[in-house]
């Protein structure tokens, strides 16, 4: 089972929930859970996992390279490139690698077969484990624009042979392409929010993606419960979304998280809550 943890609004507790679920799943599963950090712009799961040695492999986008001997400067490549990542300038073809989405269209369309593709490194995939869980995460290089190719490389590499493992995906905030890339690979989405007008506004945007567009079953975790108002709970009722848990506003939680301690280890009284969430999701998806 693949569970994505997403949110709409940032800073609502996605990573806290993802790490806690992975640790909760390690208790009684026959296979080790796998935690994939898909928030490649700002990956934080590793900070909470006390990992063994981390290995890193570069990843990126296949970009065109033009053979100047074969190229006759016809400009077909520039014509078909939607992102203006390739252009003929005088006697040369220029490639703007950071604009290239790696679709391969210029390579296919070149009438002289003058283009081949090379890997342009835009990030890396890291892998490690601790005594309870296996971990992999994508890291977008600083200055790079596109998160999605790093996310899709991470998911392609780790979801194929997952067997019966529980896989937890920690998504980027928001509801545009990096979030969509992550949640569409999942069987169930947990939307973490807080009971405030900002939390509600961004939850609504996330629900429109997950429920209305992708039709993936989902449930909500209300974090920092007790602050704000009841509008989020009312919204969940109206939209028929189960509230999986309400995590109270508790200054101790903020303090332990600020030191990189996983919630369910530092405050073990929360462990049962995350086991129950896993059980509920298991029943829903079976």
């Amino acid at each position: 089972m693949v569970i994505a943890v997403a949110s709409g609004k940032g800073g609502t507790g996605k990573t806290t929930v993802a790490v806690s679920l992975a640790l909760a799943a390690s208790n009684d599963a026959d296979a080790r859970p796998l935690l994939l950090d898909c928030d490649v712009e700002e990956p934080n799961c590793a900070l909470f996992l006390d990992l063994d040695r981390i290995t890193r492999k570069p990843t990126g986008v296949l970009v065109p390279e033009v053979d100047p001997v074969k190229c006759d400067l016809c400009g077909r490549c520039a014509e078909v490139c939607v992102w203006k990542a390739i252009a003929v300038a005088g006697e040369k073809v220029l490639v703007f690698r950071d604009l290239c989405h790696g679709c391969g269209s210029c390579t296919l369309m070149c009438p002289r077969g003058a283009i081949h593709e090379i890997m342009h490194e835009t990030g890396s995939i890291e892998e490690s484990s601790n005594r309870s869980v296996d971990y992999a995460g994508g890291v977008l290089n600083v200055g790079q624009v596109m998160a999605v190719p790093v996310i899709s490389a991470l998911l392609d590499g780790h979801l194929r042979d997952r067997g019966k493992r529980t896989v937890i995906l920690d998504s980027s905030p928001g509801s545009s392409c990096p979030m969509v890339e992550t949640v569409k690979a999942s069987d169930y989405v947990i939307l973490v929010t807080e009971p405030t007008p900002f939390g509600l506004h961004d939850l609504d945007a996330a629900v429109r993606v997950v429920t209305d567009q992708l039709h993936i079953p989902s449930g909500v975790i209300v974090n920092r419960d007790g602050t704000g108002n009841d509008d989020v709970i009312d919204f969940c009722r109206e939209r028929g979304l189960p509230v999986l848990a309400r995590i109270p506003m508790d200054r101790r939680i903020a303090e332990v998280l600020s030191e990189g301690k996983p919630l369910v280890r530092a405050l073990p009284e929360y462990m049962d809550l995350f086991r129950e969430i896993l059980a509920t999701i298991g029943e829903t998806t079976s």
Partner: peptide, 29 residues
């Protein structure tokens, strides 16, 4: 939030960035 495409678009041409952070390992990272 983040460092990718919308962030780079948001800071293009800025004279100054004010970064709002928090005292925790995630925010510091």
């Amino acid at each position: 939030p983040g460092i990718g495409c919308p962030v780079i678009a948001a800071c293009a041409g800025a004279d100054l960035a004010l970064i709002v952070t928090e005292p925790g390992v995630s925010a510091i990272h």
